[in-house]
């Protein structure tokens, strides 16, 4: 009897240990390859040139003339691009999930933009957006631009550039969100949706009442991953408008790392920006998870 309880308890403890064992390799991995440089950056951000503790680095970042524009530009990009990309990706995923004839090849085509390397993306948009580029050429061929008429894509206000950046980024990033959503859609049993139709639901009520709730954890994943990446957007910005023309947060880090790495202030600015970006991303991610209900106790599986 006592023995039985013992094994029972042991099994229970064993069962409690299992998840930790499964997660442990990840923690080891991060500690081995990632943690030290991160801690170094953190320490660096609080260290003055003379090696003393200081908050001055952060003050420097906050008073940097480019900080507020960078924060503003990043926020605009994040809000618009995450929303836009998510809804288009969801639409595409639902579309492809209907498995119409040709949907396989359609999926393949929509996935190609994410497979392009930076050098191809750079060549593509630089030749596209330049005044004598392929976009204006195409518009001329289509008769939208009159002979000799030109649109100066890269001239003008920062708002225009932000809009361009959001569209270009969307073109490349939508497939990566779509494949996560599509993977999630595969696991929703057809029978469940069919039941919805049987009880008189139309496509949209079934979508809203059955499909999307079942997809919620996948949606959370897709959005959170995109949110984190969107706050850290920089490469496409540099490729198209160069450094400092349209500052965004991580572009500032890269600027101090690559453009002016040897300035006295560069390590301080780079580490300060790095930590601030990390904090901003964390808060945004937490806020999203909170709002989307990821921390609420999960209801029982259907």
């Amino acid at each position: 009897m006592a023995l039985a309880i013992n094994t029972e308890r042991r099994r229970k403890i064993g069962k409690q240990i299992v998840p930790y064992l499964l997660v442990l390799p990840v923690l080891f991995y991060y500690i081995a390859f990632w943690a030290r440089p991160v801690v170094q950056q953190l320490v660096q951000s609080f260290t003055s040139l003379e090696g003393q503790f200081t908050l001055n680095n952060y003050i420097m970042v906050f008073t940097d003339l480019n900080f507020l524009p960078a924060l503003r530009n990043t926020s605009i990009i994040v809000v618009f691009s995450v929303t836009l990309e998510f809804f288009i990706a969801l639409l595409l995923a639902l579309l492809i999930n209907r498995k119409f004839p040709g949907s396989g090849i359609f999926l393949f085509l929509t996935m190609i933009p994410m497979a392009l390397p930076a050098v191809a993306v750079g060549a593509l948009w630089k030749t596209g957006l330049t005044t004598n580029g392929w976009i204006n050429s195409l518009l001329t061929y289509l008769g939208i631009l009159t002979e000799g008429g030109k649109i100066y894509w890269l001239a003008g206000s920062i708002w225009k550039l932000l809009a361009l950046m959001i569209i270009i980024d969307a073109w490349q990033v939508i497939p990566s969100i779509m494949i996560i959503l599509l993977a999630g859609l595969q696991n929703i049993p057809k029978e469940t949706e069919e039941a919805g139709y049987v009880f008189g639901g139309n496509y949209f009520t079934v979508l809203r009442k059955i499909t999307l709730p079942l997809l919620s954890s996948t949606i959370q994943t897709a959005v959170i991953l995109r949110l984190i990446a969107a706050i850290q957007i920089w490469l496409i910005v540099i490729v198209i408008v160069g450094f400092s023309r349209m500052p965004v947060l991580v572009e500032r880090i890269v600027y101090y790392h690559e453009e002016v790495p040897r300035l006295t202030i560069s390590p301080a600015m780079a580490s300060g920006y790095t930590i601030i970006v990390t904090i901003i991303v964390s808060i945004a991610a937490l806020a999203y998870l909170w709002v989307s209900g990821a921390f609420r106790r999960k209801r029982k599986e259907v």
Partner: peptide
């Protein structure tokens, strides 16, 4: 689960060299 995401929240470009 949330903290596993930290590796993506921390700008990787900032620590490429030490890694």
């Amino acid at each position: 689960k949330f903290s596993t995401l930290f590796v993506r929240m921390f700008p990787a470009i900032a620590i490429a060299l030490p890694m």
